[in-house]
Design a protein around this nucleic acid. Structure first.
Lengths: 137, 137
DNA sequence: ATATTTACTTGCAAAAAGCAAGTGATTTAA
DNA sequence: TTAAATCACTTGCTTTTTGCAAGTAAATAT
């Protein structure tokens, strides 16, 4: 795990050092909500991340213990990326980010069902998402 | 309010464009938890943000409708920064970030009481923090 | 055997972050 | 009432990070 000079001992600062940039949480989102799990699938996301940045962020997330690389069951050419427990524990943050956005921007149709679930039963949604992800651990 | 080219229509992406960097949420944290409200106080935070970066982030947060500038009651030389409603609605995110960090790093003594409250009654903590901040609006 | 897919890397230009010093308006202290 | 201190920034410059386009090597499919 990466040891970088901490800017402070504040827990918010600690967290932002692990995922506080414009890309890391989008990767986490894909691994969490969209079940994308290979480099190629992550690269194809709507936000069009440059491949070198994707590689850099994946390495950083791995060093921070948020994701792990595994052999892909289908092919040795592929790599399976998945969230660790530490990564899955980011679900509540992703949920709150979604709920905040819902208040201040239009939500695309394809995301409305998910938002509805989060609103109806936040705790239940998180528990369920966690359970599904843990099946793959 | 800033109109920047959206990377995608994903709510997570929308949110990260507003506060997804290493500094913005630290400023929000200070305005929220530490009741810092002037440029000088924000500049003195533990993380030692450079003054030009602070100015840039404050402008960006303002353009995104998360904070607002007001006349300081004590002096015309000072500026009062405070969270808007949109900014206050980030409280649940800050709380979840604190709770995540608590699981994976040591929390400094001065923050433990706050974390205890968040753990004991998350909803209550958020409601209360919101109520206190809204008094200043 | 060849072409394609896969997960990256490399080189370079552009943007952003970070540092140190400076500016001008206000406020305090002599 | 004037000089020093405080306030919220800005400016100039260097370093780091981001982003683009192209390339590479291993594995797979044809």
């Amino acid at each position: 795990m990466k040891t970088q000079k901490k800017r402070s001992d504040c827990p918010v600062s600690f967290s932002l050092e692990a995922f506080g940039d414009k890309w890391s949480l989008l990767i986490v989102r894909d691994l969490m909500l969209k079940k994308k799990c290979t480099y190629g699938e992550l690269a194809k996301s709507d936000e069009k991340i440059a491949t070198n940045i994707l590689a850099a962020r994946l390495l950083s997330l791995e060093e921070n213990g948020i994701i792990q690389k595994l052999e892909h069951p289908d092919s040795k050419a592929k790599v399976l990326y998945q969230l660790t427990q530490k990564g899955m524990d980011l679900i509540p943050i992703i949920v709150e980010i979604n709920l905040w956005a819902e208040k201040y921007t239009d939500i695309p149709e394809k995301r409305k069902e998910l938002l509805a679930q989060m609103n109806a039963d936040k705790e239940g949604f998180i528990k369920n998402a966690l359970k599904e992800l843990e099946l793959n651990l």
